[in-house]
């Protein structure tokens, strides 16, 4: 009897990850985590309309227990890394799967958002890096000096620079596109699709995408209009 040599592909999680379906399941779960974060972050941001004290207290509260803060950040970082890693591997696979392209191919059934996930994703990554450097690390200081404890000041000073606001608004529109497809597609990737419930999920994804983008965009727009200063 032949002995079976166990290679990397014979370990169950490795085999799951190696398949396109497994990668999409990982992307669905990590995407869901990031989706929940995006909702929570937006709700936190909206406290800017309740004044500087409220927002700065909230910022202080988030930083109050470093262990919890870093535990949450670790989950988010791992999610981002896995989400991107899977998508890059799938993108490489996609380019290999059709070596000779069509002279012309029409899209007849898919949404614009679903076809542009490979564009909205990388641009959002660039935005997140900029955003962290701007408002978390304070390395980039477009609108004046970064004050670590004064979130309100940093936000208002940053968004008074027009290109910071424009880049933010543009990125949030792309986030809406990403969520519009991702928020229902993740159910499909983990195996849930029902003729009655999936249309509701699609509508829900669109509604949440618009609400989330509107919530985020309201902050720079208010700063630019002078409502928040």
């Amino acid at each position: 009897m032949a002995t079976t040599v166990l290679g990397a592909r014979d370990v169950r999680p490795a085999r799951f990850w190696a398949s396109t379906n497994g990668k999409k399941a990982v992307m669905a779960v990590t995407g869901a985590i990031l989706f929940l974060f995006v909702i929570g972050h937006m709700l936190g941001n909206l406290q800017i309309f309740e004044g500087p004290e409220k927002l700065n207290d909230y910022g202080h509260f988030l930083h109050s227990v470093p262990e919890i803060l870093w535990a949450v950040r670790s989950v988010l970082i791992v999610s981002v890394v896995l989400h991107i890693w899977a998508s890059v591997q799938l993108a490489v696979r996609k380019t290999k799967a059709r070596p000779v392209g069509y002279s012309h191919r029409d899209n007849i059934a898919s949404s614009y958002a679903s076809r542009t996930m490979y564009w909205s994703g990388p641009i959002l990554l660039a935005f997140v890096i900029y955003h962290l450097l701007h408002l978390t690390a304070g390395v980039i200081q477009p609108g004046g000096e970064f004050v670590p404890a004064d979130v309100y000041h940093n936000v208002v000073a940053g968004f008074q620079v027009w290109y910071v606001s424009a880049w933010y608004v543009f990125s949030m529109v792309l986030l809406a596109f990403h969520i519009r497809h991702g928020a229902w597609s993740m159910f499909q990737s983990v195996g849930f699709n029902h003729p009655r419930h999936t249309p509701i999920l699609k509508k829900g994804a669109l509604a949440l995408a618009i609400l989330i983008a509107a919530g985020y965009i309201s902050v720079p727009v208010s700063v630019m209009l002078g409502v928040v200063k």
Binding site: T20, K94, A97, I108, A109
Partner: peptide, 15 residues
């Protein structure tokens, strides 16, 4: 077989 991964966009069902 070297097929690509599914991105749930639905072009397949359309055709």
């Amino acid at each position: 077989e070297g097929f690509g991964g599914c991105t749930n966009i639905g072009e397949c069902t359309g055709v």
